[in-house]
Design a protein around this nucleic acid. Structure first.
Lengths: 129, 129
DNA sequence: TTGACTATTGACAAATTGCACATAGTGTGG
DNA sequence: CCACACTATGTGCAATTTGTCAATAGTCAA
């Protein structure tokens, strides 16, 4: 068995992961920020409780793509040096594309939900077993 | 470099893949159908052009989870024997959960899009490079 | 100096996906 | 009969993505 985790939860989680990049880009669209701060602000987008290494990895990957750039923060705070990420011009463009992608995704979801509620109204949903 | 496919397209495609299971369940909610037929009807949900083996694999996986059941079609048509898939009671329930997940996903997308257009109106989006 | 909290990174296992190809029946044109 | 096209489904494996665990590192307070 290929064990695609049964039951609930999984689906949402994975779909959510697909929103991590857009959410980070959007947060940076507001202004530069540290990775740690970004991670905490992800809660606003329903992305709380992610493993930090996931978030940092995405940030580094986005940097290697040139969507964001980072420098080490000058001021010493309580802790090791922090990276400050900012959106690049390319990242700004990518954010625009992401928004379009998300609009398309929403349209697909709407269609599916529409068909489902239609089935419900019309009393379809006889499963044959 | 970990090569997370640059540029467009990828993101959408992956997000789309996450809708394959719900779409198949919904199609089967309408009534039993062959894998091949299902594959063709996926176009209605914006899921055209998928590699057949992907669709068949998901169907078999869903069967191993007990969400759908299949039998070989009696009637001989042009081609090898075909499987007929139908939704099980469990599959019907899973479809309901999927719908809830999708509603939640839509809410998240709406929120993100809302924040984005707010930024746009307020003239944010200074990227600092 | 121990523990708690802030920050970031690395390495590896597990899960997912894409793709190329294998198999198989039926019908058609030469 | 043979090659070819089209309908259908299944297998195997490489590549990619994701999750998890642990390492490193600095500051502060008891």
């Amino acid at each position: 068995m290929r064990g695609r985790g049964r039951g609930r939860g999984r689906g949402r989680y994975r779909r959510v992961a697909r929103m991590l990049e857009p959410a980070l880009l959007l947060l940076l669209h507001h202004g530069p920020a540290h990775g740690y701060t970004l991670m905490e602000r992800l809660g606003e987008f329903g992305l709380e409780g992610l493993n930090p290494s996931v978030v940092y990895r995405v940030l580094r990957d986005m940097e290697s793509q040139g969507w964001v750039s980072s420098t080490w923060d000058e001021e010493t705070t309580q802790g090791p040096p922090r990276r400050v990420y900012s959106l690049t011009a390319l990242g700004d463009e990518v954010l625009g594309w992401s928004v379009q992608d998300l609009q398309a995704a929403r349209a697909m979801i709407d269609h599916l939900l529409g068909v489902y509620s239609q089935h419900m109204e019309e009393g379809e949903g006889e499963y044959h077993n």
